[in-house]
């Protein structure tokens, strides 16, 4: 079984809000001194893939679209248990919207040995579009199952659980297919072992440019993007504290309800 896992290197979401800055000119987050990590849901996807490999054998390929720095994310994926890593150099790619990212990833996946399953995180953890998985399935002509916390082999296909409002939907899908993974208690990303970190640093990382993937400016250049970020800012949060008056709990409750109605909260 060959599983491709698409990951993205993002600014550590755990940094303090004060350390988070926006570059108003580029209309993008300013990395500053914050560390870069793999998107949290992408880590869940990696964990699901590695567990599946451990149960049924096969190989896992981690892919990312990013700068040279993104090799660090791929090395973490290798240390966790991925067998190969592919970096798609973003220098010549303008991926302002998920459709371009999906197009690039799909082209790279087509260059791999045939895959049985493609996993993504349910959303990147920074822009949170949550669209790459579905668009990737469209590009690859495969079925797509979103919000999957766990899955397993079932006959020639796969049996996947999909989180839904108030419950879980169990579906079967043929191989190959695409799934986006959400977090669950049984897919908490493992910490790599010291020796695996060292081995990961010795494994080669395949690097593709868009040209090698058969993609030109029309597919991955600025003109391929229909989305334009007009403004990007950190919303100002104001808070004020008001004590609700009343003789007892019931009166305070009634007064609170009245205020909430007045302010159109309820």
């Amino acid at each position: 079984m060959h599983i491709a896992v698409c990951i993205k290197q993002i600014l550590d979401p755990e940094i303090s809000p004060r350390a988070f800055k926006i570059d108003p000119v580029r209309k993008a987050a300013d990395p500053g001194t914050a560390s870069l990590v793999i998107g949290p849901f992408d880590l869940n996807a990696l964990e699901v893939a590695i567990q599946l490999k451990e149960r049924h054998g096969g190989q896992v390929t981690a892919l990312t679209l990013g700068s040279d720095k993104a090799k660090e994310a791929l090395r973490r994926a290798l240390a966790m248990g991925a067998d190969q890593a592919v970096l798609i150099d973003e220098t010549q790619v303008s991926a302002k919207e998920p459709s371009v990212t999906a197009r690039v990833l799909a082209a790279a996946i087509r260059k791999l040995d045939p895959v049985d399953l493609v996993l993504t995180g349910r959303q990147s953890g920074e822009w949170d579009f949550g669209q790459v998985g579905a668009l990737l399935a469209e590009e690859l002509g495969m079925p797509f199952v979103p919000f999957v916390p766990r899955l397993d082999v079932a006959g020639n296909g796969l049996r996947l659980e999909r989180e839904a409002d108030g419950g879980v939907v169990v579906v079967e899908a043929p191989r190959p297919c695409v799934a986006s993974v959400t977090n669950a208690n049984d897919n908490v990303p493992r910490l790599p072992k010291v020796k695996d970190i060292m081995m990961a640093n010795r494994k080669p990382i395949t690097v593709y440019g868009p040209g090698e993937l058969g993609l030109g400016a029309a597919e991955v250049g600025d003109e391929a993007n229909r989305l334009e970020v007009l403004d990007l800012f950190i919303p100002e949060v104001k808070s004020e504290c008001e004590f609700i008056e009343g003789e007892d709990g019931a009166e305070k409750g009634a007064n609170l309800a009245r205020k909430l109605v007045e302010r159109k909260v309820i």
Partner: peptide
Amino acid sequence: TAEQKEILAVVREFAER
């Protein structure tokens, strides 16, 4: 080195988690 940083990052995560 990148390798040393990664090992320390994992030990830190282990300690935190």
